[in-house]
């Protein structure tokens, strides 16, 4: 086999490995990368807070976890630094949509920023649910920066045990 062929094979193997890894990463966590839209007050006077928010990162990782048992689906979403009232939850078919706004709540805005990794502004994260859910009986709580939503499975999606008669 020529060196060129070996090289080509090696490269294609390496590329496959990278592509596989990337696919796996995307499948596992790719959706967590969420865009933050800073609220711009166009035409109005720019406040010191506006200026800081537009300089901050526009992307944040809102990591989610979806689990289920026989009766319900549980979604956990990491959204630190919000107030419970700032979070808006909606179920559209089999997609859970979480909207909110991370506000820059600072008593002082005059200081100088040395490190700015956190993103501010409005965001929306859509999470696909594994099965259809019931609108009624959904519960949500926000604690320690983690939103936990519990949704009862719709009747047809519930696991049913069928006993076998002898």
């Amino acid at each position: 086999m020529s060196t060129m062929n070996q090289l080509r094979q090696g490269l294609s193997k390496a590329w496959d490995t990278v592509a596989d890894g990337w696919r796996e990463l995307r499948e596992l966590a790719g959706d967590a990368l969420t865009r933050f839209q800073p609220k711009t007050s166009r035409g109005e006077v720019e406040t010191a807070e506006d200026r800081i928010v537009t300089r901050a990162s526009r992307w944040g990782l809102l990591a989610a976890e979806v689990a289920d048992n026989d009766d319900r689906v549980q979604v956990m979403l990491e959204v630190p630094g919000l107030e419970a009232d700032d979070i808006d939850i909606e179920v559209r078919d089999d997609v859970l949509v979480v909207r909110g706004e991370k506000k820059l709540a600072r008593e002082e805005t005059k200081g100088q920023y040395h490190v700015m990794e956190r993103a501010y502004g409005r965001f929306e994260r859509a999470i696909r649910l594994p099965v259809p859910v019931e609108d009624d009986g959904a519960k949500a709580k926000y604690r320690n920066g983690v939103l936990t939503v519990s949704l009862p499975k719709s009747r047809s999606a519930r696991a049913r045990r069928i006993s076998v008669e002898s």
């Binding site: 990491e78 959204v79 200081g111 700015m116 320690n144 983690v146």
Partner: peptide, 18 residues
């Protein structure tokens, strides 16, 4: 993390959900 410096102090904000 965000790190902000003032005349009299530093202030850090660290996201540690959960």
């Amino acid at each position: 993390v965000d790190i902000q410096e003032f005349d009299s102090r530093f202030r850090l904000y660290v996201d540690v959900p959960g």
